[in-house]
Amino acid sequence: MRVSDKVMYNTTTQNMQMSLEKILKLQENISSGKRINHPSDDPIGAMKIIDYNTSISKVEQYQRNIGNATAFLGVTESAISSTQDVLLRAKELSLSALNETNSAADRAIIAEEVSELYQQVLQTANTKFNGRYIFGGYNTGTPPYDSVGLYEGTASPDGYIEIEVDSGSRVAINIPGYRVFGSPTDGVDILAALSSLETALNNDDSTGINTAMINIDSAMDQLNNELAEVGAKMNRLETSDSNLSKLTLDLITYKSKIEDVDITEVITDLAIQENALEASRATLSRILQQSILDFLR
């Protein structure tokens, strides 16, 4: 092949250009840490990354939801167990009130303490978490139990605030007040039971005290059931949370395998391209410096 000056020049510059293009691409890969910077780098890979990003974002959101639910259920749990303590005390008091040695005046004193317990339960039933009444069902505007202990939250069977903890799987983060503290129409109305205990004590009415005590017993069963349900839910959420953590980790690993550069490989490639570029430059400088004119004197 006849070699003209342009062939020589073009070949070397084209080679340099090619090396430079590859180096630019490698530099982009190194600086972004990513193998795929444009969809054309790997169209299928780019699609998978988008899908993984969606899955990761969803899983992370489910974990946040679980965090919210756990906090809400935690407050519910402590509210129920503190009510249990109150009812235990109420039962103790009614037992001692039933003792024949107590006079009507003694019972009136006990009635005062029961009245305190009533207030305590009422306060617990109107517990607020982040400004929200946790036993109100859907209704957050007003306290679920009014001053006379009447339930004003969302009526049975509604009032469950559900959130997604996995695709299509929902968990209620609350238990409506009517399930825990009861209402005139649902379960044992705990506040009514305490209130009738107080009345019976004030009236020195042992039959009334007995009836109230039976009611308080069933109220404690009711609370136990709800507490068990809250506990079960929290366990389930904890299991989901650790599964989701593992899933996030897996998804991030899969995504990284597609998206991230193998830094050793890229650096090696870069070194190879740099060598090629250096060689082209050396050739260009040596060949183009030489001229027949140097020898014509």
Partner: peptide, 24 residues
């Protein structure tokens, strides 16, 4: 590749709905 595409914005949009579902 830095996470500001439409896909990420769609995810953010739905995440914000999820957050709202936990505190409507």
């Amino acid at each position: 590749s830095y996470g500001a595409g439409i896909d990420n914005l769609l995810n953010d949009f739905f995440s914000a709905m999820q957050d709202l579902s936990a505190n409507p």
